[in-house]
Nucleic acid binder design. Structure first.
Lengths: 325, 325
DNA sequence: TCAAAAGTGTTATCCTTACACCCATGT
DNA sequence: ACATGGGTGTAAGGATAACACTTTTGA
């Protein structure tokens, strides 16, 4: 049944997220200053050296960024993209396991820089995902025209069970009355990839040579499937926020409610209603006042809070069930 | 940096779920009648033969069960359990990618039987997960005494960030006022494994030989890490029900509201309030009446409904947001 | 006529959303 | 005093949870 197989290598790749003020940041490593595309910290899994994936991942991250990874969770395993395996390949087939990690910004970035790594605002890679200042112009100016064309050109030949291109477009980039769903970040990236509108699609050879044309720049690109892993991380984090208190992994031990709101807004890419956010946090009993306050924010001094670790046992799903707005 | 690595093999494993009347069923394959433990359909991923994981998975499932897999989603990639890799190993290190698949019962089970496969009620493997007839006695009679002992014996030597054993016990198997959370099926299995209370833990050599003792039977066991994958599938399905209309993958195209409710109850392992369930479904506009009705249920004939596929585009997360009860 | 299952009606309560206004500090 | 951000009160509307009763069939 099974013939001789080409070798398989497992790549462990980490999307390490942090928030600096109002910007969500992603840790990029390994690329030199003048050598785009950027990449995420990653390395092969070696079962002899690393007893578990997570140990392997942490050791690669430490080696490439001199930073401990903190909270870590597995996202997804990708095996179906990039160069396909052929008989006689010398290179092993690479499968990547993507991870999400959360840290707070280190005080001192010099060790990071020495290791050739650094943080970059994640919306550089996904400019259409940041709705904090309203609907991003790139959507109507560039993305929707191109995707509409793509959808119109493929209304036949779809397999029965799959949604049509039109439907998938409407699902990921809703127009008309339907609301934007910030959790669909991965669906949107996948759609752009399938439509051949991101550089990675051409690089992977998905678009036949004759179809290739000058692409508009839809966000900065990344090496291999790293941008796909980042999109997965964003989608997962945006969704997980709402039912697990993961946001606190991104905060300092003590924080003001406004900085907490800013962090949530940075991650989810949209505005929240101040009073409602506060009530949500306080009635959810996720947080307790330390009694201290800080005048460092300008204006009236803000009360400091800390995360109540007890909630983990009290309630089934203690997250920030963000509503509309 | 990297030394010669042992070979790696990727195993694709499917938890194929169906509901028969009131029982959730899991497809087991490959074990002969008199040869427990049962196993899930699975096989190695061959990048030359299968272009994607999903294609590979579907072909293994077809070969071992003569059944098309239907809706498929990746669950998790496990690499850290079972026999650890050692230098000089002849066998490759096996990493398993677990999948969840949903189908409805085939009309005719003979092809399945001929392929050596069959459905089994999933609560045989997890008797503590079925709360439809109240709190399962095995919890108070067997599980909690053993877990309490385990928790009491390990209150020191925990790493700082990890929850203590007591806390994890309270989290997974809440006592006192805290409500049972049916979505924590995986956490519960993992806890039992770590406590050395399921057969797999001893088989994997987690418990030192001197500690081994006669175990109580905590559910039927499965081969390799298959029961862990099933626990992952149950947890994922129970949670996904609530925000995506996956339940309809388990239904016939036309169904009564009671059979829909029975299916949801079977999966989530608890009772639901009839009127509230109906309002949820109808106001959620997940379903539309066909106009027909069936007298096949005994008693008053029931109106038939079908799933409204349009909801997928109308609302961000159209699931059955089940409340209490 | 009775068992069995389908299918309402109604209310109290809580949660969500959206208003707009007041408070404490530094300059 | 005024700019800057911090921090409420409160009311309308909708969703939820819980109550028990009526309807339609087959035996």
């Amino acid at each position: 049944m099974a013939t001789a197989r080409t070798g398989i290598e497992i790549g462990l790749t980490a999307a390490i997220v942090s928030v600096d003020g109002e910007e969500p940041q992603i840790l990029v490593a390994g690329g030199n200053e003048n050598e785009p595309p950027a990449g995420l910290p990653s390395g092969p899994f070696d079962p002899l050296e690393h007893h578990t994936f997570e140990i392997g991942l942490r050791s690669w991250v430490m080696a490439q960024t001199a930073l401990p990874a903190g909270y870590v969770e597995q996202l997804y395993t990708f095996g179906d993209r990039g160069r396909a395996a052929k008989v006689g390949d010398k290179q092993p087939h690479v499968v990547s396991i993507g991870y999400l990690a959360l840290t707070h910004m280190p005080e001192n970035l010099s060790a990071l820089r020495a290791a050739g790594a650094g943080f970059e605002p994640w919306y550089r890679f996904f400019p259409w995902e940041d709705w904090r200042d309203g609907r991003p112009p790139i959507i109507d100016e560039t993305i929707l025209p191109l995707l509409s064309e793509w959808a119109a050109s493929g209304t036949r030949k779809e397999p029965a069970r799959a949604l049509s291109r039109q439907q998938r477009l409407q699902f990921s980039f809703p127009t008309g009355g339907s609301p934007w769903d910030e959790e669909k970040a991965l669906d949107r990236y996948e759609l752009l990839y399938e439509a051949g509108l991101v550089e990675e699609a051409q690089r992977d050879g998905r678009e036949a040579a004759r179809t290739r044309k000058k692409l508009p720049v839809l966000g900065e690109t990344m090496r291999f499937d790293h941008r796909r892993i980042l999109a997965t991380a964003i989608a997962r984090l945006r969704s997980k926020l709402k039912y697990r208190p993961v946001i606190f992994e991104l905060m300092n031990p003590e924080f003001t409610l406004t900085s907490l709101q800013n962090t949530v807004e940075a991650i989810s890419g949209r505005h929240l209603h101040k009073q409602n956010f506060r009530r949500l946090v306080e009635t959810g009993a996720l947080v307790e006042p330390t009694g201290e306050s800080t005048a460092a924010t300008g204006g009236r001094p803000a009360a400091l809070f800390r995360f109540r670790r007890d909630v983990l046992q009290e309630r089934p799903s203690p997250g920030l069930r963000l509503g509309a707005r």
